[in-house]
Measured scan of single mutants.
Amino acid sequence: MKVIFLKDVKGKGKKGEIKNVADGYANNFLFKQGLAIEATPANLKAL
């Protein structure tokens, strides 16, 4: 799943980066902690 990092995550990505991560990691950690959002066309356009 492509995500947009909202904050720096050690070993994974920096704020503003768009990266592919495992679905479970994105859903269970990044999204719940507010560290990233899904890289949907609408979210990409908002950058």
Rank of each mutant, 00 (worst) to 15 (best):
K10G: 09
L6V: 12
K45G: 11
F29W: 13
K32E: 14
F29D: 03
F5E: 01
N28A: 10
K45F: 02
F29C: 12
K45Y: 09
K15R: 13
G13L: 03
N28K: 10
I18F: 07
G11R: 05
V21R: 01
G24Q: 15
A46K: 03
N43Y: 11
D23W: 15
G34E: 03
A46N: 07
D23K: 13
G16D: 14
A26T: 03
G11Y: 11
L6R: 05
K19L: 11
I18D: 04
D8G: 08
F5G: 00
A22T: 15
G16A: 08
P41N: 14
D23F: 09
N28Y: 12
A46L: 12
K32L: 11
E17G: 03
F5R: 00
N28P: 03
T40V: 07
F31H: 06
F29R: 08
G24D: 08
G34D: 12
V9Y: 06
G11P: 03
P41A: 13
F31I: 13
I18E: 11
K14I: 03
I4D: 00
L44C: 12
D8A: 08
A26S: 06
K32H: 15
G34T: 06
E17V: 04
G11S: 09
G34C: 14
T40M: 05
N20I: 15
N27Q: 10
F31D: 05
K32D: 14
A46G: 14
L6Y: 04
G13R: 01
N28T: 08
N28M: 05
V3D: 00
K32F: 03
G24N: 12
K32T: 09
K19G: 12
L35F: 03
A36V: 08
K45E: 14
F29S: 09
F5V: 00
A42R: 11
L30Y: 02
F31W: 05
N27W: 10
E17I: 02
A46D: 14
T40E: 06
K7M: 11
Y25M: 11
F5M: 06
V21Y: 11
K14N: 12
K19F: 11
D8F: 07
A26F: 15
F5C: 02
K45Q: 08
A36S: 01
G13F: 13
I18H: 01
F29N: 09
I4E: 02
K12L: 13
K12I: 15
D23I: 14
I4V: 07
K7T: 12
G16T: 03
K10N: 09
L6P: 01
L35T: 04
E17Q: 11
L6S: 05
V21S: 02
N43R: 10
D8M: 02
V9R: 04
Y25H: 09
K7A: 12
K12P: 01
K45D: 06
L44V: 12
N27A: 10
G11I: 00
D8P: 03
I18N: 03
K2C: 05
F31N: 02
K12C: 10
G34A: 10
P41R: 05
T40L: 08
K2G: 03
G24L: 07
N20Q: 09
G13H: 15
K15P: 14
L35I: 05
K7C: 12
K14M: 06
K14A: 11
K12F: 06
K10H: 06
F5T: 00
G11W: 10
K15M: 05
L47W: 09
F5Q: 01
G34Q: 10
M1T: 06
K45R: 08
K7Y: 10
K7D: 10
M1V: 06
N43P: 10
V3F: 00
V9H: 01
D23S: 10
G13P: 00
D8V: 03
L6F: 07
G13Y: 01
L30C: 00
L44S: 09
K12S: 14
L35W: 11
G13E: 06
G34R: 08
L47N: 15
K12T: 15
L30Q: 02
D23M: 08
N28H: 14
K2F: 04
A42N: 07
N20R: 07
L47T: 12
F5S: 02
I18G: 01
K45W: 12
K12D: 14
K7E: 12
T40Q: 06
T40C: 05
K19Q: 13
G11H: 04
D23P: 10
N20H: 14
K14L: 15
V3L: 05
K32A: 11
G34I: 00
E17H: 03
L30K: 01
E17A: 07
N27D: 04
A22C: 14
K2P: 00
K45H: 12
V9C: 06
A42M: 11
L44I: 14
A42K: 14
K2L: 06
I18C: 15
V9N: 06
Y25P: 02
G11C: 02
G34M: 10
N27H: 03
P41M: 03
N28F: 09
K19P: 00
K7R: 11
A42Q: 07
I4G: 00
N27L: 12
V9A: 08
D23Y: 02
I4R: 02
K15E: 10
A42G: 13
K19V: 13
K32R: 12
Y25R: 04
E17Y: 01
G13W: 11
G34W: 05
L30D: 01
V21M: 04
F31G: 03
K2D: 05
L47C: 08
N27C: 12
K45I: 07
V9I: 13
L44W: 07
I18A: 04
K19Y: 07
D23E: 15
K7H: 12
Y25D: 10
A26L: 05
A36M: 01
K15N: 09
P41D: 11
F31S: 03
F31E: 00
G11N: 15
A22E: 12
K32G: 10
K45S: 13
V21Q: 04
F5K: 00
F31L: 13
N43T: 08
F5N: 01
V21A: 07
I18K: 01
M1A: 02
V21P: 00
F31M: 06
L44G: 06
N20M: 13
M1I: 05
K19I: 11
G34L: 07
K45C: 10
A42W: 14
Y25Q: 08
Y25N: 06
P41H: 02
K19H: 00
K2Q: 01
M1R: 00
G11Q: 08
K45V: 08
L30A: 02
L35C: 05
G24I: 08
G34V: 04
K12M: 06
G13S: 06
L44Y: 14
K14R: 12
P41Q: 15
T40K: 09
G24Y: 08
V9L: 08
V9Q: 03
P41G: 09
A42E: 15
L47Q: 12
L47M: 14
T40P: 07
A42Y: 14
K15S: 13
L35Q: 10
L35R: 06
K12N: 13
K15F: 03
K19M: 14
I18R: 02
K15Q: 05
L44K: 15
G16C: 04
V21G: 01
A22P: 15
K2W: 05
L6K: 06
A46T: 11
L6G: 02
L35E: 06
G24W: 11
L35P: 01
E17S: 05
F29H: 10
G13Q: 05
Y25K: 06
A26G: 07
K10D: 15
K7S: 13
N27F: 08
T40F: 04
N43S: 10
A36G: 03
A46H: 01
K15Y: 09
D8Y: 05
G13A: 09
V3K: 02
A22H: 08
N43W: 02
N43A: 07
L35Y: 03
K19N: 15
K2M: 05
F29L: 11
I18Y: 02
K7Q: 12
G24K: 15
I4S: 02
G13N: 00
D23G: 12
K10L: 12
V21F: 00
G16W: 09
F29A: 10
A22Q: 14
A46F: 14
V21H: 07
L6C: 08
L6M: 11
K14F: 15
N43C: 06
F31Y: 09
M1L: 01
K12H: 09
G16Y: 15
D23T: 15
E17M: 04
K15H: 03
I4K: 04
I18W: 06
A42F: 12
V3W: 00
N43K: 12
K15A: 13
G16N: 10
K14W: 09
A26C: 07
K15T: 07
L35S: 06
A36L: 00
I4T: 03
N43G: 06
V21K: 03
K32Y: 04
A36H: 01
F31A: 05
P41W: 06
A46S: 11
G16L: 10
I4Q: 04
K12V: 12
A36R: 00
K7W: 04
G11V: 02
Q33H: 01
K32P: 15
L30E: 00
K19A: 14
K2S: 06
A22L: 10
L44F: 09
K7N: 10
K12G: 12
G16S: 07
G11L: 02
D8E: 11
